[in-house]
């Protein structure tokens, strides 16, 4: 009974998603034709060939460097560079994804720790509450693309290169949602619960561990879901200005240097897949934690 309900709910959730995906792919094909056709018509005219509309459509779907690659071209490249080459090869997307992932995860861990520390500070030190939040909000309005090269250059000047500088850019982007979410979470206990702890003459340390921390757990998972996606963006952005030789960011950069639009799109999709997997992983971790904490199954 329970498993049947589960399957049908899975179906009910999967069906709309699949439908949207199909619509997107269809729109993508239309866009590929519309964007590639002018160049193809131009080319055909210069070469003096006349083609039927059907042939023109087919031609727009197999250009070497299309303005807009067709979905199957991207899929083919994705397949080849994911499964067709050894994962240690520099042509492998898995290799590049792993490079980006490793700095994403490192930056995410740093960012989460930093965000939690800031949130604890803000909720427990009134001076920080008043002085800190405007600054961390300001920190997020600075365009990352402009700051990232400076971080890389400055750190390189003091001898820090490799994974750490990229991870720090992820940290910069990911601490913010965690700090904001955890401030809200640590302040989420009801007045009644706080009064209850007060009536037991609980220390603020006890109130923190026995009430504020457990109450903030759902907020924690919501914010790290945002933070891990931001970390990935940070890692990719960190790879762009560094002339990085590996990573999804470097694939994007190389693709744009050589107008390899298909490669760019393949790398973009690889990045999205990694992001989805990471967010899904956090989601599952959140659900398991909620269940372990006795939450009502939803």
């Amino acid at each position: 009974m329970k498993s049947a309900g589960h399957t049908s709910s899975l179906f009910h959730r999967a069906a709309p998603v699949t439908l949207i995906l199909l619509l997107l792919v269809a729109a993508w094909y239309v866009a590929a034709y519309a964007l590639n056709a002018p160049y193809q018509r131009d080319l055909n005219a210069r070469q003096g060939v006349t083609v039927t509309t059907g042939e023109l459509v087919a031609q727009t779907m197999r250009q070497q460097k299309p303005t807009m690659p067709a979905p199957h071209q991207v899929a083919e490249t994705l397949w080849k560079t994911t499964f067709g080459v050894p994962v240690t090869s520099r042509r492998s997307l898995v290799y590049h994804a792993w490079v980006t992932l490793s700095s994403t995860l490192l930056g995410f861990v740093f960012g989460t720790l930093l965000g939690v520390v800031i949130a604890v500070g803000i909720t427990h030190v009134p001076a920080l509450d008043r002085s800190f939040l405007p600054w961390i909000i300001t920190s997020q309005t600075i365009p990352m693309l402009a700051v990232a090269p400076m971080i890389i250059v400055i750190l390189a000047a003091v001898g820090v290169t490799g994974l750490i500088p990229k991870a720090l850019i992820s940290t910069y982007l990911s601490f913010f949602p965690v700090a904001v979410g955890m401030v809200k979470g640590l302040r989420s206990p009801e007045v009644m619960h706080l009064d209850l702890m007060h009536s037991y003459d609980a220390s603020s340390w006890q109130t923190f561990w026995k009430l504020r921390v457990p109450a903030s757990v759902p907020y924690f998972f919501t914010s790290i879901k945002v933070a891990i996606a931001a970390s990935l963006v940070g890692a990719i952005v960190g790879e762009l200005p560094t002339g990085a030789v590996a990573g999804i960011g470097s694939k994007l950069l190389a693709g744009s240097y050589y107008s390899q639009t298909i490669d760019i799109w393949a790398a973009l999709i690889a990045g999205s897949v990694v992001a989805m997997l990471l967010v899904a992983l956090v989601d599952v971790a959140g659900r398991l934690t909620a269940r372990a904490m006795g939450a009502r199954p939803s």
Partner: peptide, 12 residues
Amino acid sequence: YVFQQAALFPWR
């Protein structure tokens, strides 16, 4: 002290 609501901690 007994409050108007039970005020039990849901995770306990």
